[in-house]
Every structure is written in structure tokens, then in C-alpha cells.
Amino acid sequence: MEGISLNSFLFVGAILFVSGIVCMATKRNLIGILMGVELVLNGANVNLVAFSRYSSIGIDAKFIALFVIVLAAAEAAVALAIALSFYNNHQTIDVDQADELQG
């Protein structure tokens, strides 16, 4: 670990974050969008863990990261359930088909 600076970790985190946002914005498949969300959350987690080693925040940041992992799992479970319910009603999970509610 010696020799790797904080900035390198933050750079990885930022790349994950941006990839996640791009993924969320461009994917038309709901599962793809959820993958983008996971990337964003994990980008933030990389930041948190790196900060817990290099900045004065200490172990608090690691605990935040642990809680985030749990919450991300809960959110993914609910999102998949909703995707299933959407599939049952529309026979697709293409989000472009969700165009009934407008105005």
C-alpha cells in the first residue's frame, strides 16, 4: 500500500462514479440502470475507504461504507421486485416503454 497516494484512490472512485452516471443515463434496460447505480455507490465506497486510511476521519468512514453495502443490497432487492412487477404488466423492462404517465 505504501507509495500509492490518496489521489489515486479518489481517481478510481471518480471513474466509477462517472461510469455509473453514464450507465444510468444511457442504458434503456432497467437492469442496466441498476448496475449503474451500483457503480455509483461503489465509487463512493472506494472514496470512503480511502479517506478512512488517509484523512482524519478514521474508522467512521469505514462504517459508513459497511452500512452503504447493506442499504445497496436492500435497494437492489426492492428495485428488482419492482422490475418484475413492471415486467408482469408490460412484458418488457425497457424503460422507454414506461410512457403511459405523461404531462
Binding site: 455509473g20 452516471i21 444510468m24 432497467l30 440502470i33 441498476l34 449503474g36 447505480v37 455509483v40 455507490l41 463512493a44 452503504v68 435497494e75 426492492v78 428495485a79 419492482i82 422490475a83 412487477s85 413492471f86 408482469n88 404488466n89 408490460h90 424503460v95 414506461a98 403511459e100 404517465l101
Partner: peptide, 19 residues
């Protein structure tokens, strides 16, 4: 189901940004 789909997509996205 469409309403909740839109809610969950926006919600998950903004939660990630906030984190």
C-alpha cells in the same frame, strides 16, 4: 408499476449522487 419504476430509478440515482 410504471409509477414505482420511475420512482425507484430516480430515487436510486439521486441516492448514489448524494452518497
Amino acid at each position: 408499476s410504471e409509477g414505482s419504476l420511475k420512482y425507484v430509478v430516480y430515487g436510486a440515482g439521486t441516492a448514489g449522487v448524494m452518497l
